[in-house]
Structures are given as C-alpha cells and as structure tokens.
Design a protein around this nucleic acid. Structure first.
Lengths: 212, 212, 212, 212
DNA sequence: CATGAATGAGTGTTCATTCAT
DNA sequence: AATGAATGAACACTCATTCAT
C-alpha cells in the first residue's frame, strides 16, 4: 500500500530504464561499435562511470537494450487470436494494428533495425531474438493465415513463405524510419502505409476472385 | 598495339575492385565502425598500407564501396519498361526478376542492408544513395503501377505508398540474408519467396475481382 | 573556507604544467616530429591517454608549450627600464642579467632553440612568437640603445641592426646549450660568457674613444 | 682530355648532388623527422626508389647532406691567415667576409640551423661536425684574436669565450634566415648586419681607448 | 550512489624501405 | 639506372573500463 515513492527512490529505480532508453536511441542511430558510452551517459544525464553501476559492459548494455525491448513485445496478445471473433482478414488487421500500438509507434520500433544491423556481431543475441521474438511473431501470422485458408477465406498459399512476405512491409516501415527516412526521402504516413499494405495483402490473399 | 599488359599493371587496375569487394563483405557483416582495415586488407590478400594507395581513408573506402556498388545497379534497364509488350503484372514480374538477376543474386545484394545500417553515420552518402538509387528504383515501380491502373488492370491505389509496400518484401529478402538469416532461422528459397510475393501482390493489385 | 583540496583535485590542476614541462624537454631534445607522445607521457609519469584529457592533439600540446613558455617571459620587467637610474651601459647589463635570471637559467631557455627548429612547421605559431616575444624583447634593447645614443654615451649606430647583433650572443648561449653543447664541445661558464659579451658590447658601443 | 661529357653521364654524376641539395632544403625547413623522402624525391624530380640507389637510408642521406655541406667549409682559407698582411681587425673582417662568400651567401648557410636542430638526434654526427667544422672555425678566430692581443691592437680578453661571442651574431644571421626570418619579421640586409657587427666587435676589442 | 580522472589496448594512418618490372 | 607498387613497423589518437574520492 506504499503508494508514495520518494523521488530519489524513483530515480534510482528508473535509472536502468533511462540509460537503456538513451542507449537504444544511440545504438539505433550509430550502431553498436559507433556508439560511445560517453554519449550514452551524456544523453541520460549521468556520468560515464554511472553506467557501470548498472551494466557490466557495453555489450551487457546492448543485450539489455534488446532484451528489455523484447519484453513488451512478448506481452502482446497471443491471446488476441484465441478469443477473436471475426474473419481472418479482420484478425490480420487487428494484429498489425496491435503491433503498431505497442511497438511501431513507440521507441521500441528501433529494435528491428538495430537487430538487423548487429546480428552479425552478436550471433547468440540474434538467435535469442529470433527464438523469442521472431518465432512467436511469425506464429501469430501463421495461425491467422491458417485460419483464413481453413475457412476458405484465403487462397491456398505457401504459408511459411507468405508469413514473411506479409510482415516485410510492416518491418520496412520502421526500418526506413530509423535509417534513410531520418535524413532523406518522404516518410509515409504510417496509417496510410499500413492501410494500403493491408488492403493489398487481404485482397491478395482473398480467395473470392477464384470463385468467379 | 600494346596487347601485352604487365602483371603488375593488371594487378594495379584490378586492386581497387578487389579491395572494395573485400570491404563490402566486411562492412555488411560487421558494420562500418566494426570493420577493421587490417581485416579488409587480409581478406583482399594485401597489407594494410596498400589500402591507402587506393583510398584516402576508411571513410573514402566506404563511400567508394557504396558508390561503385551503385553503378551496376544504375546500368540496369529502365529500358525494360519502354519496350515491354505485356500486361503490367508481367512487367512487374519482369522487373523484379531482373533485379534478382542483377542485384539480389550478386554480392551487391549486401548494399541495402549496409546502407540501412550506416545511413545515420553517413547522411550525405544516404542522400546520394537515395537520390541515385532509390528514386530511380521507385520510378520503375511507379510507372508499372500507373500503367496497370491506367489500363484498368490494377485497382486504383495510392501509388506512392504502394510502391514501397510492394518493394518492401523484395528488400527484406536481401536484408534478412545478410543479417539474422546468416545465423539463425530458415532462409527461404528466394525463388519461392519472390514467386509468393508476386502472386500475392499481383492478385492484390488486380482489379478483376471488382468487376464482378 | 574550503581550505582542503583533494589530492586528485590538486593533481588535476598541476597536470597540464607537468605535462608541458615534460613535453618541453623532449621537444627541445628531439624536435616536434621526433618526439613521441608515449615518451612525453612516460616522462610525466602518466599514461598516453592522460595527455588527451588536457590537450586535444600533439600540435595543441606543442602550441601550449610555446605559449605557456611565453607567459613568464612577458611578465618580466619592461618596468625595469622606466625607473632605471644609471647609465645605458648599466641598463644593458641589468636587462641581460634579468633575462638570465628569468629565462636563461630556467627550463624556458629551451624555447628559443625549439622555436627556431620548428618555425618552418608552425608558421602561425612563429608569427605569434615573433609578435609576442621578439618584438617586445627587441623593444627593450632598442630603448636602451636609444637612451645611450641620446645621452652621448653610445656611438651612433644603426639601432635596428645593432639590437640583433647585441642580442645574438645571448641567444646563442642557450641555443648552444640545447644543441651541440649537450653532446660535445666546451660549454662556457654562462656568467663569464655574458660578462665577456657585455664588456665587448659596451666597449664597442662606447662613444668615449671618439672623444680623443 | 675528354672535355665532352654526355648529358646522361653528366646527369648520373650530378644526381647525388641534386638529391642532397633538395634534401638540404627540406631538412632545413622541416627538420629530419618532419621531412618525407617522397618530398625530397619530388623536389629533385625523381622517384622515391631512386633515392635508394644513391643513399642507403634516410639517415645516410642526412649525414651526407651535413658532411658534403662541410667539405666546402673546410676548403676555405686557413691559408688566409698565414699570408695575411694587415691588422688583426682587418683580418677579422676578411675572415668573416670570406665566410659570407663561401657559406653565408650559399645554400650551405642552412647547415648550422639544421645541425643545431638535430644535434640531439644525431650525437655522433654532432661530434663529427664539432670536431671538423667548429673546432677549425674557432681556431681561425682564435689565431686572429691572439694576433691582435699580442700586437697590442686588441684588449686582453678571455679568448676562448670571446671567440664564441664574436661568432654568435654571424651564426644568428643564417639561423634567423632559415627559421623565423622565413615567415615573419624584418630580415636584415646581410651586409649592413655584418658591417654593424664588425664595427662593434672591432671597436669593442680595440685597445686604443685604454691608452688614453 | 555517483563522479570523472586515469588507464592501455586497439585501430586508423603514415612513411621509410624493398623489389619486381 | 629508374620506377612505383607493396610492405609493415611505428605512432597519433580513441574509448571501454577501472577506481580513488
């Protein structure tokens, strides 16, 4: 029932998150090797030494950034599917809408670009990310596609391949934003972009045409 | 009439390309900051000092890698579109098939991942890449979509957005290969992947259904 | 009321001077290009990295060495002349005696040799040194000569030229000490050397003879 | 009696001298460590490799520059003194005039500054230079002073000290020219400078006044 | 807890030297 | 003899990491 938390206390507990937030921004912007801990510390408003009170090394900080960036992703609704009433197309729209709310529209959106850039340098972390995030995310899409195909709503496609084809534009949205989109080119309105993608995808998957 | 070229001479002319090929591999794998010039030199089979006979600095090498990696891309056929006899759907398939032949299936396929990773560190280069490669590539897709829409073959969609939605899975194919695909996860058969994508996209774009 | 200063603190403030003292010795001995920062650091009893906490680059260190070496020189008494009671000859002896006390007999005596050696590599610094040190030093001699000539004590000579002729042996004393004098040849007793020079110079300047 | 020499031949034999002339300029300007052999070669109009056909190493080139710079100095007239008819003062003027003709007014004038700058880095060479050039040069002055003193023309002074006092302005003339004089400050007219110096010195040495 | 001065291993870059042509 | 491509040791500079305060 201790509702009041002392500012100091709050600060102390918030520190790791603040540091990781600062680190995420810089890792995304400059890559792992290109990011200096001085800059991370400066952005978080602490001294360089303070970083080492919370993280054993630069690498540990990096892993924490990725892994903490994953937790909220994992919390997301696998539950969404089970209880879902509606067509597979509607479910697909709901899933991606959910993704947008919980990831695409938050600082976590930088994680995919970061993981792509650094997978070569952190293979174990990449495996962890794959097994923890990608496998589960793909599973959500898989079940959605399978439901649609089983119901005759979707055409019969190679599901494993289609999963990636369908999620690719979603990923590119955030990859672009944190790479070339930051310095040049039009950045799309995300809602229009996702809308267009879903329209095309749903239409593309639709079995309707073939009934003609 | 000087048909004979000395080995030294031959070597000297081939050197920059050899060095850039080695550098591309390592930059893609480890990023700019994570790549050591010792390793680049070793992979090219020369000493570190030799790099400096051909490139003023690590940054100059990086820029050369990107810019030389672009030349072959630019040489590709915008001409493909003009003379093309066939439906817009067939043209789309032809374009992406061409891309696969000339880029996706060559070492140049590493360039997009590299540019995405380093755009933040080399903004001017990113602008150059955008203006030189991306703008032209998007133009090819744009003309294809416009032709299909004008012919009533494709549905009316927001073309600027659709361009990116449609090219995203193509890019993700090579991005994946040079990132997480290298250490984990199933790597798709590229032909099946592109096939699936094109089927979905063409079907998604198709106006046929709406004629019912 | 903070009378206590922490050792770290004390050290931090003393560091630049320690580093510059070590650097002066080595720059004088080996020249700018021939001096390794490792050696400077070692002589100052710190690590190489520490140098960069206080100086941005080797060049910045060099400039600081010269410029800080100038400050004590500038503090010296132009005031000596104004209040001086006595003959111009006595004033000349006093000035050079002062120079010996404040420069010739301190580590600053290495600066002239250093500046001579490196003027070609640091032209702007040479200009700064000239304008700040040499011009002022020459002015002291000039006023002394002019006073002596005006009083009929000194012969009429080309003052601008005589300034340098008279100061040359003084400079050579320290130049010699930090160059060939260090490895070969007799090093004069400085007092006898300056005495002899002043006797000759004063006698040479004296108008007495011509009164005959 | 082969008076005609082929240009090629002439070139070949002149090469070392050309290289040393180029090297002298650069060594004087930038110091030993600061001089790049590329630049020496470029200034001499040959390739870098060619240097190694004539000199074993950079150090060998440096030593040759100094030692060859000495030969003409040694050729100068010790003989001048023996046969000299005239006062010691006239002899002093003649000696320094000779020095001006043979050294001060030639590229060899850069040698003293170079030797001063690099004595610390080449102690053996400094010893050689000292024993070969300085000792002999001082001997010429010594004999002149002794002759003057013996004849009652010069005052009794500490000869060993006076030697250096008297030669210092002569050296400073060329040291200045190749150091700060190159980038700032008035460069004196050498004749006026030497004239002024000799007038002062001769007057300073003169015993006349004391006879009064 | 927090700091920031200090460290030293690591890397980009230079340049004297070599050698195949 | 002359070249200049290639080398690799050496050095300036950076930055992750430590630790006394």
């Amino acid at each position: 029932m201790e509702a009041i938390v002392h500012p100091r206390q709050r600060r102390k507990e918030a520190r790791p998150a603040e540091l990781m937030a600062a680190a995420l921004e810089l890792f995304v912007e400059k890559g792992f090797a290109g990011t200096r801990l001085d800059d991370v510390a400066a952005r978080a408003g602490v001294s360089k030494g303070t970083l080492y009170l919370y993280f054993d090394s630069k690498e540990a900080l990096f892993k924490a950034v990725i892994q903490e960036g994953i937790v909220p992703i994992l919390e997301q609704g696998a539950g969404l599917i089970d209880g879902f009433k509606g067509s597979a197309a509607e479910l697909l729209r709901a899933l991606i809408g959910e993704w947008w709310q919980r990831i695409g529209n938050t600082p976590l959106a930088g994680v995919p670009k970061l993981m792509i850039s650094e997978a070569g340098n952190f293979p174990e972390l990449a495996v962890y990310y794959h097994d923890t995030v990608i496998v589960r995310g793909r599973d959500l899409i898989r079940r959605t596609l399978q439901r649609g195909i089983a119901a005759g709503e979707f055409r019969v496609v190679d599901v494993e391949t289609a999963i990636d084809v369908i999620f690719a534009p979603v990923l590119m949205l955030v990859i672009w934003r944190y790479s070339l989109g930051a310095c040049c080119g039009v950045s799309h309105d995300p809602r229009l972009y996702l809308q267009t993608h879903l329209d095309l995808a749903v239409n593309g998957l639709s079995a309707a045409k073939e009934r003609i």
